[in-house]
């Protein structure tokens, strides 16, 4: 059984169709990369899956039950976690408190003491130990991204949606991040979907399967190498070659 299943999901903003009859299946523990140029509907797709927006058409099935109309906090309880493209930590709170919130209200919803312990574990995992008691608003953008990842992992999700987490990171950090995500995913059986706009290297290193979105629809859904070498994908990114024009 698929962990997440989208059936003909459509989300419109006025006349603009941001996600157009999207169907998709994600299996347990799977690693998927979502790529696509600016405005192709990737973030809207995330928002529809996590419940920030409700789709006009279609249905979203998570672990066999229909969650199309479920508010975002209920989806978090079921095991859908996500990060934001522009990190949104609770900036007046410390790093530790931020990550603890994930554990406190996420899938397992444990008590304050246990949440703080869980937080310490994931803070160590993403390498923010030295910043644990700092106010998160004072950290660098990259560190804020790490807070978001730790916070999302502390929710103990079954499906984790990462929004451009590797953009702006040092290549070495990207390698480390990919390794870390793979380890956590294997250990805790988390399906991870990572959205990438530019750094294709990160996609290949990360995902077995790549979904390419274009104008709100799925253009290609194939194994990583195959998807990125698909002429349609190259065309979407670079335009037609001079010879073809």
């Amino acid at each position: 059984m698929a962990l997440l299943k989208l059936e003909n999901v459509t989300k419109r903003f006025g006349g603009l169709v941001a996600v157009d009859k999207m169907s998709l299946e994600i299996k347990e523990g799977e690693f998927i990369g979502i790529v696509g140029p600016n405005g192709s509907g990737k973030t809207t797709l995330y928002n529809v899956i996590s419940g920030v927006y409700f789709p006009e058409n279609g249905s979203i099935i998570f672990e066999g039950s229909d969650i199309t109309k479920l508010p975002p906090y209920r989806r978090a309880h079921l095991g859908i976690g996500r990060t934001f493209q522009i990190p949104r930590p609770f900036s007046s709170a410390t790093v530790r408190e931020n990550v603890a919130v994930g554990a406190m209200f996420g899938r397992l919803s444990v008590n304050v003491e246990e949440s703080l312990e869980t937080a310490d574990y994931y803070i160590g995992l993403v390498g923010l130990k030295a910043h644990r008691d700092k106010i998160s608003g004072a950290l660098t953008p990259t560190e804020k991204k790490l807070i978001e990842i730790a916070r999302a992992l502390a929710m103990k999700p079954k499906l984790l949606l990462l929004d451009e987490v590797m953009a702006g990171m040092h290549p070495e950090s990207i390698e480390k991040m990919i390794r870390l995500l793979k380890e956590v995913s294997e250990e805790e059986k988390i399906a991870i979907v990572s959205m990438v706009e530019h750094i294709m290297r990160a996609v290949i290193g990360f995902a077995k399967r790549v979904i390419v979105m274009y104008r709100g629809a799925k253009l290609v859904d194939a194994p990583a190498q195959e998807a990125l070498n698909d002429p349609r994908v190259i065309e979407v990114y670079l335009g037609k070659g001079i010879r073809d024009a």
């Binding site: 920030v52 975002p72 978090a76 976690g81 949104r88 609770f90 007046s92 994930g102």
Partner: peptide
């Protein structure tokens, strides 16, 4: 604290 700082992020974190 979470909802005061960012209500949308708080919702996605599982907070009613």
């Amino acid at each position: 604290t979470a909802l005061r700082e960012d209500e949308d992020a708080a919702k996605v974190m599982g907070i009613n």
